[in-house]
């Protein structure tokens, strides 16, 4: 009886000490280490149960396995396409990253006036040399490239739309990376890609994005989508008709972009007519030059020269 009392008192002492202090933590961990075999044995029935469950579920497992095999085959087929997509993705990423950089320098401009003359498709914007606008600057709207600045005044600027027959823009077929020139058709709606080789890889509904060839436009902005392809057998070139992505003549506000990659607008550049830029690009791309522009060059020359020095 005395032993019993002594052990009960000892137990209560252990209880109190463990309740108040951490002194018995080593004891607890050594008890746990000693009791581990017991716990292991006690765990076994649960594992056995799981084993029998596994045996019972074997039929289901086989079904699931077959399903996984089918999925695996299907996925393997898709993986083969991934490599092509990866290449495209890399190119798109390159385009996007340059876009990101450029988006940091942009200015919103209001459209003050729009000319509807088929040979004078221009916008007048409420930004000028005062705001750092320069000749040749790219103008975009929410959907794509709209045109470029051809005249800079103090408070206003004039932009030539991409649908103007005098305007040419270097573009890249987004799907294939093919570089070419898109010039305005003068109908106020469509662009023409007149210098495509007969075997060019271009399809209806291909997206054309701006290319930095020629050094004027920032690359990667949507320009137009191919509407139809025209190729007369025997002709040297295939022609593609494309509709601009930008909503020409429907935007109240446009965005002016600063292209850091562009050559600084020198006097040389400034004195040339806007369509010389596509001419330069054309030489880069190895295609013949577009027909020379006949109108709007005089204004651009006079107003553009001082503007070229302003930024």
């Amino acid at each position: 009886m005395r032993r019993a009392l002594a052990l009960i008192v000892l137990s209560i002492a252990v209880l109190v000490v463990d309740l108040r202090t951490d002194a018995l933590d080593p004891l607890r961990s050594s008890i746990m280490r000693a009791a581990y075999p017991l716990l292991w044995v006690a765990e076994q029935p649960a594992h056995t149960h799981r084993f029998f469950e596994f045996l019972a579920l074997r039929a289901d497992e086989l079904d699931a396995y077959e399903q996984l095999q089918r999925t695996h085959l299907r996925l393997l087929g898709r993986v083969q396409r991934i490599e092509a997509l990866e290449a495209e993705n890399r190119r798109l990423r390159a385009l996007l990253s340059s876009t990101d950089v450029l988006e940091a320098r942009a200015l919103v401009a209001e459209v003050l006036a729009a000319s509807q003359d088929p040979y004078q498709q221009r916008l007048t914007l409420n930004r000028g040399s005062l705001h750092g606008v320069y000749r040749g600057q790219a103008v975009i709207d929410a959907r794509g490239v709209l045109g470029q600045i051809v005249q800079v005044h103090r408070q206003t600027a004039s932009a030539l739309l991409i649908t103007d027959p005098d305007h040419g823009i270097p573009v890249e077929v987004n799907r294939t990376g093919l570089q070419t020139i898109a010039v305005g058709r003068g109908d106020g709606q469509a662009l023409s890609l007149p210098y495509l080789p007969g075997n060019a890889d271009i399809q209806v509904d291909d997206l054309l994005v701006s290319s930095s060839l020629g050094g004027r436009f920032p690359s990667g902005y949507p320009v137009a989508r191919v509407l139809e392809l025209r190729y007369e057998p025997g002709d040297s070139f295939m022609e593609a008709i494309a509709l601009p992505e930008a909503r020409v003549n429907q935007s109240r506000q446009v965005l002016l972009l600063w292209n850091d990659d562009a050559r600084p607008a020198s006097n040389d550049d400034a004195t040339t007519n806007p369509s010389t830029k596509p001419v330069n690009s054309t030489e880069d791309a190895g295609a013949p030059a577009p027909p020379p522009a006949e109108n709007a060059s005089g204004d651009a020359t006079e107003d553009g020269a001082p503007a070229g020095d302003s930024p």
Partner: peptide, 19 residues
């Protein structure tokens, strides 16, 4: 003590209750 440690309660609790 083993019960206390494995149940995670204060050491000595099951000892007293058993003794």
């Amino acid at each position: 003590l083993v019960l206390d440690a494995t149940r995670g309660v204060t050491l000595g609790l099951h000892c007293v209750a058993l003794l």
